[in-house]
Design a protein around this nucleic acid. Structure first.
Lengths: 252, 252
DNA sequence: AAAGATATTAAGTATGCACATAAAATAGTC
DNA sequence: GACTATTTTATGTGCATACTTAATATCTTT
């Protein structure tokens, strides 16, 4: 008869909490939602100046710290802009700000329920060509390791990657067997970066990519380029050419 | 002789501050850099558990709040993962997390030093086709306003946009003259959204887009789709088809 | 051993307070 | 008037403290 009592008590606690939150407590999330609501319903329009934190805090009846926390969240989202002494204004030229999470390709395939495969196509060493040198922002070409490989999903090509790695920055990679495991994976697990540039565009498959991926020559392919550094030392730059139909989505 | 004295004093203050910051004060940014440094130099490897905030605070000699602030920053960047009672661990499956800012097209063109132009191609009203209905996650097609327009940079096509707007959610748009100014601009300034989905992919120009943009039929074009809601009400969905060579970059 | 209740723990939040900082406004000087 | 110095001010930060929350670990009960 008294089973699940604890669970019931917890439910009651949660209920009390909700009531308390509504009536008494002021969480920064509530404050943020309240302010955001006033922006959404045009009480404050783009370009408008919001009252200063202190006043908002007094109106609501919470600490200024709490308003500050809410405001920082809105500021991080690109909804408002804050400047010392200048106050807080609703962004006049709103941007669509999105957070993109690009996972390791293997994880991406497996998360979709596919079987992941990896195939090393070619490994060589040589001077970086102009686009690669430019990606790194280097003054002159350097000798780097070039790795061309194919990621497979359910035995079919998924992403072709063309990578250059600086063995000067990452000497350990020379000892890794890259015929089984992707350099992507090793690097991302063993060499955290401090800076990362991303670049997205579309490219016609052409003779080269169509041959590798087995697509029509005129197919349009989505390409992601990623370049990473540790401090100012170049780590790697990859051009990832995806299969037709590939889409990059933002997390909701 | 005593000109710029204030400026000099400020320099001295700044110097003192630097010294103080190094010797005494512990800003959360310093704490974050210190921890991040230990992750970058593999003192803590992916999957490792970090000491609890309290201990780190004691070791460094700062308040726990400061460590908390630093940790939240690392957590926001996707470098560590934090769980109540579970502690802080270095992300085992690191993702490349990037922040994308997509500005209003006019701003983008002008920022590049180009002359912006806008051309309304067609306006009509009708039931949303399947892909549009799906983008909004609606159960059934709705009557919405369709706007096809061209953004120009230096008198040449830059982006072709095919937009559907729910006049039910945004009735005011009916009163706006869309022949001069883009719906994009009006909406973004007057109708903030509470949710936004983004989708990027590549598409072959084909007969339709090549005709509008004046490109080769086999050209690969970069496409951005954006759908916005206010709470659960659909606002608009746009397919923005860009000119060949268009690239989307992350802010550094 | 399995299920459920309880305790413990580490992160998360709220607050008051003092002070730092950068930017704007004002005052001062030549 | 143009430049510079000073003051003002709204946001930003650091700290101590107390409390909340969600997750895990441990203990009980059957």
């Amino acid at each position: 008869m008294f089973r699940n009592l604890c669970r019931e008590i917890n439910k009651i606690r949660q209920f009390e909490d909700t009531v308390l939150t509504v009536v008494v407590r002021h969480s920064w999330k509530n404050v943020r939602n309240e302010i955001q609501g006033k922006i959404l319903d045009s009480t404050y329009a783009p370009g408008d100046k919001l009252p200063k934190d202190e006043d908002i805090a007094r109106d609501i009846g919470c600490a200024r710290t709490t308003v500050q926390r809410a405001m920082r969240d809105l500021s991080d989202s690109g909804i408002v802009e804050r400047r010392r002494k200048g106050g807080t204004i609703v962004r006049a030229d709103p941007v669509t700000r999105a957070i993109l999470d690009i996972p390791i390709t293997r994880m991406e395939v497996e998360q979709k329920g596919g079987v992941y495969g990896y195939q090393l196509l070619e490994m060589s060493s040589g001077l970086t060509p102009v686009p690669v040198t430019a990606n790194f922002g280097l003054g002159a070409p350097q000798v780097m390791l070039r790795i061309q490989a194919l990621h497979l999903a359910n035995q079919r090509p998924y992403i072709y990657e063309d990578r250059w790695v600086s063995l000067q920055t990452v000497p350990d990679l020379a000892d890794v067997d890259l015929s089984k495991k992707s350099a992507n994976e090793w690097l991302v697990r063993n060499k955290p970066y401090s800076r990362c540039d991303l670049r997205f565009y579309a490219a016609r498959a052409g003779d080269h990519y169509s041959g590798i991926l087995g697509t029509d020559v005129n197919e349009a392919l989505f390409v992601m380029e990623r370049t990473t550094w540790i401090h100012t030392d170049p780590i790697t730059t990859v051009k990832a050419v995806t299969m037709p139909g590939y889409q990059l989505l933002t997390q909701i």
